[in-house]
Write a protein that binds this DNA or RNA. Structure first.
Length: 453
RNA sequence: GGUAACGUGGCGGAAUGGUUACGCAGAGGAUUGCAAAUCCUUGUAUCCCGGUUCGAUUCCGGGCGUUACCUCCA
């Protein structure tokens, strides 16, 4: 489609036309998980949002022209702490959580990124970057620690609209006698004997948070690239520090041209976070809901807005997909989605706008024409919905059944016999019995069918 | 204290300097033994006060309220 993609750029806080540096090589880097605990639906939001942006970029520039990098941070103080609490080794913890994370991505029907680098596999590049920063006088060493010297970087605070004086006045700045200034942040620190460590010019130790993203984005996308994404809470300090490190080490003007940040999921209007103890794990949904339901719920609000979570939302999305599956047809040919229909997604990833389009296409499809149904199904598939056949969708719901299918059919037969005798009292009694067990009976066109309520 | 975001019908949630968002729930109807599902029809809204304008929910200013970030976090 010829229309431009519009994105809300956190750098400058404006909606802007997206212009890639090279339309044949569009780069997007998104901060992936720190693998220390089970992924929750707050983590799921950026997964789905940037999966959609990936799809939209590919739609505009071609499948092979978009590079999507999402890292896995598998070395961090939180991981060390969590492995101690759980009393398992760090490698066991990180591989375990990484596996869960991948399961959750699959459940949410997210595409696999082009590259998914791990921090521990790129330590050498981090050491190199620290050396560059030392050489360029943006870092200093003290007692086996290396710090970034924030004062030497003029543009510090540009992304998050902060100035240095405010930061220093902030109450949570970590004080350390090894730092020259309180606002400086750590690039390398020594490890204790029981902590993971790598050799470096400053002794055995490990990298500070932030460095892995600077290094791995450079590795796959270059010193300057198009889009950097992540949750809002990463704007400061994580992304601010990434910019500082990258720009000062690579001696470039810019790091990422467009910064896209998703807003939070809230519970009773308060941010969902591990530190708040109000999280819902992605895996908690797997038994009851098909992943598509969670996916639809996550995109029912624009990514830049907070999304307040509640059960009603899931029920509504379940209902919507149940209805939409009435018009599902397998599609084997390539169908182009109309520009007008795609427009909401091109305009800053307006998912609620696109969902409204899907409702409109459903209304056309339900009139019965095969072609309209194919168009509707294709449009749903574009955002990762209706990716399973109707049979798969139905069978998912049957997996938690308390009754066997034969028992149900027997009951239906009994009921139909009663109906033939006009014994409606007995017929309704059987129906209600089944309903109590979550099975809904429908009499349609002279036939009786059942489904999960 | 500093920096931001947000406030739209009963609920969720887009957009817009003038004209239907959309969905859920509610109401009425078709269908049904009754239901369910589906289909048809339908009511209801822009936090408050100023300003700009022919016209403001939209732009500007001031309130009020909610939330987030200020070196753990998606």
């Amino acid at each position: 489609m010829n229309k431009d993609i519009i994105l809300s750029n956190s750098l400058g806080n404006k909606k802007e036309k997206f212009i890639p540096m090279d339309p044949k090589k569009v780069g997007m880097y998104v901060c992936g998980p720190t693998v220390y605990d089970d992924p929750h639906i707050g983590n799921a939001r950026p997964l789905v949002v940037f999966d959609l942006l990936f799809k939209v970029l590919k739609c505009k520039y071609g499948n092979k022209s978009v590079i999507y990098v999402r890292n896995i941070t598998d070395i961090d103080d939180k991981i060390i702490q969590s492995s101690k609490e759980k009393n398992i080794s760090i490698s066991e913890l990180t591989s375990n959580i990484t596996e869960k994370f991948h399961d959750d991505c699959k459940y949410l029907n997210c595409e696999i990124p082009t590259h998914e680098p791990k921090a521990t596999e790129n330590i050498e590049l981090m050491v190199n970057m620290i050396q560059e920063l030392l050489k360029n006088k943006f870092a200093y060493e003290n007692k086996k620690h290396v710090y970034f010297k924030v004062k030497n970087f003029r543009d510090y605070g540009k992304l998050s609209n902060k100035n240095l004086d405010d930061l220093i006045a902030g109450s949570r700045v970590e004080l350390s006698d090894k730092k020259e200034n309180p606002e400086d942040f750590v690039l390398w620190k020594p490890s204790n004997d029981n902590e993971p460590s790598w050799e470096s010019p400053w002794g055995k130790g490990r990298p500070g948070w932030h460095l892995e993203c600077s290094v791995m984005s450079k590795k796959y996308l270059g010193n300057t690239f198009d889009i950097h994404g992540g949750g809002r809470d990463l704007i400061f300090p994580h992304h601010e520090n990434e910019i500082a490190q990258s720009v000062c080490a690579n001696k470039t003007e810019k790091f990422a041209n467009y910064w896209v940040h998703n807003n939070f999921i809230t519970m009773s209007k308060e941010k969902m976070a591990k530190s708040q103890g109000n999280i819902l794990k992605i895996s908690d949904f797997k038994k009851k809901y098909n992943g598509q339901v969670l996916r639809l719920a996550l995109i029912s609000t624009h990514y830049s807005q907070p999304l307040d979570w509640n059960e009603k939302l899931m029920d509504e999305c379940q209902k919507t997909l149940d209805k939409w599956y009435n018009c599902y047809v397998p599609v084997n040919k390539k169908i182009l989605i109309q520009d007008d229909d795609l427009n909401p997604l091109y305009d800053d990833l307006n998912t609620p706008g696109f969902i409204a389009v899907l409702h409109k296409l459903y209304d056309k499809a339900k009139e019965g024409k095969q072609e309209e149904k194919e168009i509707f199904t294709t449009a749903c598939k574009f955002i990762g919905l209706l990716d399973q056949s109707k049979e798969e969708w139905d069978s998912f719901k049957k997996q938690n059944l308390k009754l066997s299918e034969n028992d149900i059919l027997k009951k239906i037969e009994d009921r139909n016999k009663a109906r033939d005798k006009k014994d409606y009292e007995l017929a309704d009694k059987i129906r209600n019995e089944l309903l109590d067990k979550g099975i809904l009976i429908e009499d349609k066109d002279g036939k009786t069918t059942w489904k999960i309520k």
